[in-house]
Design a protein around this nucleic acid. Structure first.
Lengths: 210, 210, 210, 210
DNA sequence: GATGAATGAGGATTCATTCAT
DNA sequence: AATGAATGAATCCTCATTCAT
């Protein structure tokens, strides 16, 4: 019988393992705060070897960003373009939070990037980011959000949702420290998902509410 | 004739001007991303001169953080300990946002710190931060929040408010780029303040609502 | 149908093609200024593959030098040992210049080597270089050069000729830039050959001048 | 008694001493072959300290080049613009060779630069180099050179002189090795100066020759 | 207080070379 | 032969910090 369930870390290509280690460190310390040497050490590699896989620290960073962003982008595109029902709204929140929960570094990476001005975000996710926001707003316009929010408030509402979702992950360490909550545990994530669904319903009246 | 109305920037002590320049850069680029030399250049000073005013980059950073945090802390302490009426709730939001609007770097600094794990935050604002959260939660318990939120959700609600407030400033550059909004202009801030007040009322039913 | 007239570059052995690319780059940038990787790229090869043909960069460099030097050496030996007549003197200059014109990198390589101290030159061409100079001087002594030059000036005269011949090629780029001369074109080389012949006749009275 | 004859090396500014050490090494090994660390070691300095005086290796190199070039440039300008008499011609050769003898690295630096394509030379000495050649040619046209050389040969004659003068210094190590001549000693330089004067008279008939 | 110069430690990256495939 | 990946040593340069002036 062949190897049916090989240990993942041994299966992964070096390139993938570099991306993993880099993502971890970039999420923790940001781009400037992360030394190439530390990434290399994280993969058990000589720093010079990284350059066989990525031409520079910056481009490695962008690769990390891109790899993390792409699935979210696709998810958002899918969500933003679908029909809006109470069910899909709930599922949208669930799916986004679940996805971010699955790659907990992503929220931090995005937050770091946003702080840095978002130029790279704009460049990398350029084709997506704008359209996603636009479609998100269109989706809001088709939803019952329009009953509570004026057109010019919709962008702010988008930003608010983004802040709520990302902020939770960014503040995870703080949460754990202060309230002794294991923010990224399955229960923690379930709790936060339910909480966000609740907020969503308060901010946007569910379509089929009685 | 004596100097009767000296230009403010000339009036400020060198120490103050260093703090200003440092705050600006730390907010833009984070601690690791900011070079002492750049701070010095921002004050028109030789890097060596900084060390006449602060013993190290790290302690300068903490001084920046402390200077920025103290007023917010005091404000929060005041707000959290006061009576809860619809008026004070509105005014609380207003005052916090107004304050952050007055020092727009602060939100970014805090976000950076949060991402970094919040250890410094905890140390610097240690005496305040915990108590503030606690009192914030107590205030929520005295408010009509309890009608919508269970006890265990209140910490999440605190985090949510923090995310909403800070997130706006962190994303300001993105907002301006994508929606052509001048996020930190007086109008922008007024708009966001109103928006946050609205959200607050949705998440926490106002006390004197009919 | 069989390959009847294969393109030369395809015919050349890989070893030869490496030597070609290396010669080109070493002549342009010198030994230290040339990266193995660039040589490899010049042959469309992986850097590692070079080491199947040459054991090290240094030995590749020496191989380049040797390949370039050998024919000149042989030519010089032949010229220096032959009879001295006006005709052979003219032909000597012609043949040397013509040869260098055919491998324009060689002059540059030799000049680089000379600047570097000539140790490698001495080692590689050791068996030739000394003897050639010696025989060259002997030839000068048999020529009418002795009418104008004292014995101790003959080495300087050798150096002068070497400088004149090599200098032209080293300065070729400058010449083209400043005077819009195509220094390495057939006409340019013919011009320079004639010019050098003229100088030779001025410095060494031709044997059969009337 | 005050310090009347301070040791030169102690008097020189650090900047000057860096330029000296750099000139030495660049002349010996070329730009690519010289490590910043070695220059620093030559001055007894930490490599990082160099960067307090020059912003980069390249700009240090250019500073070296410029410092070396400027006096020659000025000398050449002066010579090329003066009256042409046998005496001044002799003195011109003498002065140029004497100058180069005083800074023996210069000839090597220029040769290296020429080999590298002369782009930097053109940029640094841009305003001088072209004009100098032009005036040199004009001077030749006013001299008795026109009796032996056609107009189109004059550029080649300029190049020939440059090769003769620089070549001697470039080949100095070789000369010393092969002929046991101390090429850069005062006697060696005197010998070469006389030799070049002789060549000059053969290539350009002296004005007042009988 | 301010500064020019100095420095050890560390930064990213390049380099020649090796080796398993 | 050729190559992708790996590596130790070196490369240029930056950084925070110190110190004499």
């Amino acid at each position: 019988m062949s190897e049916t369930a090989p240990i993942q870390s041994e299966t992964k290509s070096t390139r993938e393992r570099i991306l993993d280690a880099a993502e971890q460190l970039f999420a923790e310390r940001g781009l400037a705060g992360t030394a190439v040497r530390d990434i290399a050490a994280g993969v058990g590699l000589n720093p010079a070897s990284l350059y066989n896989h990525f031409p520079s620290k910056d481009l490695l960073y962008e690769a990390v960003l891109e790899r993390g962003l792409q699935p979210v982008m696709e998810l958002l595109v899918e969500l933003a373009s679908g029909e809006q029902t109470r069910d899909t709204e709930d599922r949208a929140i669930d799916r986004v939070v679940t996805h971010l929960a699955g790659s907990p570094n992503l929220a931090k990476l995005i937050t770091y990037e946003t702080l840095a001005g978002g130029e790279r975000l704009a460049r990398i996710g350029g084709k997506w980011l704008g359209p996603i926001y636009m479609r998100g707003i269109e989706a809001l316009q088709r939803s019952r959000a329009v009953e509570q929010w004026e057109a010019q408030e919709l962008p702010l509402l988008m930003v608010a949702f983004q802040s709520l979702i990302l902020g939770y992950f960014a503040m995870a360490p703080l949460l754990e420290q202060m309230f002794d909550l294991d923010a990224t545990s399955p229960e923690g994530l379930a709790r936060q998902t339910a909480f966000l669904r609740k907020i969503t319903h308060l901010l946007i009246p569910p379509r089929d509410a009685v």
